[in-house]
Computed example of a mutant assay.
Amino acid sequence: MVNQLRTRAAALAPELSALRRHLHANPELSFKETQTAAFVTKKLEAMGLRPYAVAGTGVVALIEGQPGGPVVALRADMDALPITELSDVPYKSQNPGVMHACGHDVHTTCLLGAAQLLTEVKDQFKGTVKLIFQPGEELLPGGASLMIKDGVLENPAPTEVIGQHVFPRLPVGQIGLRPGRYMASTDELYLRIKGKGGHGAMPELNLDPVLVAAHLIVAAQQIVSRRANPKMPSVLSFGKVIANGATNVIPDEVYIEGTFRTLDETWRDEAHQHLRQLCEGLAASMGAVCELEIRRGYPCLDNNPAVTARVRAAAEAYLGAENVIELDQWLAAEDFAYFSQAAPACFYRLGTRAVDGRFAASVHTPIFDIDEQALSVGAGLMAWLTLQELN
């Protein structure tokens, strides 16, 4: 059956390309995917399915095989990023300042393709396939958490959840995966350091929040370098600092934004407390005030070892063992993590770079694009993995 599925997936390539190009040209921001959801709904209805809305712009549909058997959920995200596309391609974004720079158009296309392939053979498997087209992966609190809250993992409850994501570091025809802890939790940090501004030539009359901010940014790194277990990956980064003074003006306050990421939920909570104590205590010791807001983001993404082992074996049968790569841990974050916390799950990476080296630009850049041969690979593989899990 594997050869038949490969052949059928390859035959879908022109249709998949058209689907992806339509989605790429019409991107929508997180939780605003109304036209995308309508497009997905129309395509699912054309397959004879009965899609329904979950969590606003989320779309869910069931492919029901023979009675009995497990329930395998397949997830794709649909939202785009606030990035202006720079590539001059026929399918370039038609929405100014919005771009599918993270490949969610690819994910949605591959899941639609997998749905088509699975619908065609639904009389040959037992169980149910739950198709989850998710909004808002790029924006807290994450569409996955809202869909779960709205009951997407109920009626029927999936026995496992599988998701895939583009990966330009790998060429078309390869995938990457990793059992266990794979991706990090992510928290947003917002700090406001309040002092007393004034003339830069009279610092004795002021309380310089810039100096306090400089000490704090350096001192905060000891949370990672000295408080964290050296074997536990952690990242504390500050990417935005606003001290709106001048060459001879000390401002009243400094505003800082950053992120904290790790692969352990217990240490995550401890680090929050350490950071809060450091910010408040260091600022107070220098006569200033530091207000810290921690916006808790996505949890750690854990790939269930048993499910991931089965996915690896099935992928090796479909792609060849040499094309299934073991990935390192990665401190980027993904709200698929919510699914991985709620059910046995596997999240793997789909190679999208051309074999000749084209399409190697990273995600979240204005020139990101893919070798569209990845579409039939992604759709066929997802269908194959599902059939193996069902059977």
Rank of each mutant, 00 (worst) to 15 (best):
A317Q: 15
N303T: 05
C290Q: 03
E291I: 04
E291M: 05
R296P: 08
G297S: 00
G297K: 00
L319M: 06
A314Y: 04
D302T: 15
L292H: 06
V311G: 11
V311L: 15
A306T: 14
T308F: 07
R312Y: 08
D302R: 04
P299F: 02
N303M: 05
N303H: 01
R295V: 15
D302K: 07
R310Y: 09
T308S: 13
V311S: 12
L292W: 03
C300D: 03
E291Y: 05
R310P: 09
P305H: 06
R310L: 14
T308D: 08
L319V: 05
P305N: 10
C300S: 10
L301V: 02
P299Q: 03
R296C: 08
P299D: 00
D302I: 14
P305G: 04
R295S: 12
A314F: 09
R312F: 10
V311Y: 12
Y318W: 15
R296W: 10
A313S: 14
E293H: 01
A309K: 09
A317W: 05
C290I: 07
A306H: 13
P299I: 02
Y318M: 13
A309D: 12
A306D: 15
I294E: 00
P299V: 00
P305E: 14
E291R: 03
N304F: 06
N304Q: 11
C290H: 06
L301T: 02
R312M: 10
L292P: 02
Y318L: 08
A317T: 12
T308A: 11
Y298Q: 03
E293Q: 13
P305C: 06
T308I: 12
A315R: 06
L301K: 00
E291A: 12
L301S: 01
C290D: 08
D302L: 14
P305D: 13
A313K: 12
R295N: 13
R296N: 02
V307I: 15
A306Q: 15
A306L: 13
E293W: 03
Y298D: 04
R296G: 01
R312S: 12
N304L: 08
E316Q: 15
G297I: 01
A315M: 09
R295Y: 08
V307Y: 03
P299Y: 00
R312D: 09
R312V: 09
C290W: 09
T308M: 08
V307M: 02
A306Y: 11
L292A: 07
P299C: 03
V311K: 06
C300Y: 02
E316F: 12
Y298L: 05
A314N: 09
A306P: 05
A309T: 09
E291P: 04
A317M: 08
L319T: 06
V311T: 14
P305T: 08
A317F: 03
L319K: 06
T308Q: 07
P299R: 00
E291S: 03
V311E: 08
P305I: 11
N304G: 05
A314I: 05
L319R: 06
G297T: 00
E293F: 01
C290N: 06
E291N: 12
T308G: 04
V311F: 13
E316K: 15
P305A: 12
V311H: 09
L292E: 08
